[in-house]
Design a binder for these strands. Structure first.
Lengths: 192, 192, 192, 192
DNA sequence: GATGAATGAGTCTTCATTCAT
DNA sequence: AATGAATGAAGACTCATTCAT
């Protein structure tokens, strides 16, 4: 038996296909039949793995969000200084958004659109704890502005999605230099 | 004769209905029939004012973007100092996004989704010139970071949309104090 | 006052437009709105002259059929010999079908299609009497085959429509020589 | 397994229904829903077999034309004399047009109407070669008039459609005697 | 008489979902 | 587990016809 079962492979193919097609056409403009075709399974097969279309996107969303979070905290050590920790996480996130474009675009679309239901949204959020903890610590140490984490997120993390969008639409090209500049701006906005 | 013709009223009702329904359900999940019903016209009437569904959203997008831009630069005088000018514009934008929630949500969805075609996106952008000019001036005076306007926008303007989204989802409440804090963060991120 | 009233002109324009559009698209694929546009009147105006769409084609059919019949018997004198009379009529019909192509195509489409109602069809037929009389006389004189006039029509007159169709589709070019050959064939088929 | 698959049966039912309904109402006046109902399948099923309505008629046309051609040349042997061969083919065609009325009416409507697209028309023509060859041979032998095959077709074959139409409208009754008379007229018109 | 905005029934077509195989 | 043919509900769009002006 393979380490990854045939079933698992099919599910992954479906997830990949969903991401790609929803990115290009939006959720409601991507038929299940196309997802099936791209994943090289039959239309009926989807329903062996997912209850229905809504359940499919929900699951994909949760999965991608999990992958994103995992990536965001790779190499992250809780003990590290606030600034160092933030830089680590921020650059991970930036790397994710600029390298795993498909996944990142998908998240961006889901987060600005009513296609994901509220429970799945909640589910998707729960991995972000370490960043919130870090910010909490920063606030205690007088390093981070004493504002809502939503505000911190809005000004330091959310902007990366915009840059990614512009790059995707070929209006803007992100270089390593830009990334450092961007990091500076992010840090400037949240540090005291 | 009325100042606003009956036709004009119908078109406006259609625009309003489109914004509201697309906000709540997304573009592809809002049938023309519902738009018609909400605007209290017959389904066929839509096609007197718009070529098809795509044309409808495109036009609504352009219109809302124009309204947004107009609002963004109200009371703005070109001669004013860079910081003062930026504060003026930023607060206008914030006010728009927090007061004209329907319109702002609509823009946010359109800007992160493939429902608007590229020509209409271009059309929607062209009113932002004064802000770009201001930033240019700021860079010359050594006040604003010498980075791409996309970057400046990402870190100073785009975050407002996130706050609006969170408020809309009732996860976060924006108060006048918050607005000032947010402005500080915006300014901190772009100023040298 | 003009000899031809404004009303009459509008009606004629509508008839012409109907013929042209039905020829190119078929009855059910030509909207009233297009007919109105081509006739340079408003859509509502059609209903001042015709009860509804069916009535419009019916009337156009009857009118064109009448024009056709009139043309068919121009210069025709009842006293003339059967062969001479037939040649006269046949060549008139051929001339009509090859010169008044729009009208002739329209008739051809109506005659092979269920778009005209039966009463109007009957109405359209009633002008053909002189030809039937001529054939009757020919049969009495032992010149024309003693077969049903439908048969005589099928083999001597109906073929012209086919040639017209082929010419219209640019598969066949009718020359004066052809016309004479065709007449010979027509005559050969019905004469004893 | 059946000799004729279930799928094949459905397609045939759709073809039959299309012929029947288009005959009675014309192409544009027969909704897909009615075709589906008559074929006892769901509306959506049509689109498993045909791309769209146009494709449906095109395919039906080609199929019927092929059946017609096959019938026209049954029992036909190339070596036979020109007159014998022509009589064979002509009578086959007459038999088809008088027995397979539905199919024949359908062809008649398609051939005098812009509902079939040009490629499908071309496709439909290609089976008529043997008749053209026979006529060519007849011309060489000085038996058939040296005129365009379009002319020969117009005067010898096309008339049958007229007789069929009249019979269908119950204005004329075709008997075996009539058929022989008609054949004589056809032959008289094309023979030298 | 003339207009053309408005209607809404009717059409083609798509697509999520089911189910016999 | 997997298929894919079949369904039928729903949606975009058209168009004959009406009616206030």
């Amino acid at each position: 038996m393979n380490r990854v079962s045939k079933s698992q492979k099919k599910k992954e193919a479906l997830v990949k296909a969903t991401i790609s097609l929803v990115n290009n056409n939006g959720f409601h403009a991507t038929p299940m039949s196309k997802i099936a075709k791209m994943a090289e399974v039959s239309a009926g097969t989807i329903y062996l793995y997912f209850e229905n279309k809504q359940d499919l996107v929900n699951q994909v969303y949760i999965e991608v969000k999990a992958a994103f979070s995992k990536f965001a905290f790779k190499d992250y050590k809780e003990g590290v200084s606030v600034e160092e920790g933030f830089e680590n996480i921020w650059k991970n996130i930036a790397e994710f958004k600029l390298k795993e474009i498909e996944e990142a675009m998908f998240l961006s679309q889901c987060d600005n659109t009513p296609i994901i239901d509220e429970p799945s949204r909640k589910e998707g959020l729960k991995h972000l704890e370490p960043l919130l903890d870090l910010w909490e610590r920063g606030k205690e140490q007088g390093i981070i502005k004493p504002v809502s984490p939503y505000m911190l997120y809005a000004f330091s993390i959310y902007p990366i999605a915009f840059l990614m969008n512009m790059q995707q639409r070929e209006l803007y090209k992100i270089t390593p230099t830009n990334v450092n500049e961007a990091y500076e701006m992010a840090w400037n906005s949240i540090k005291i």
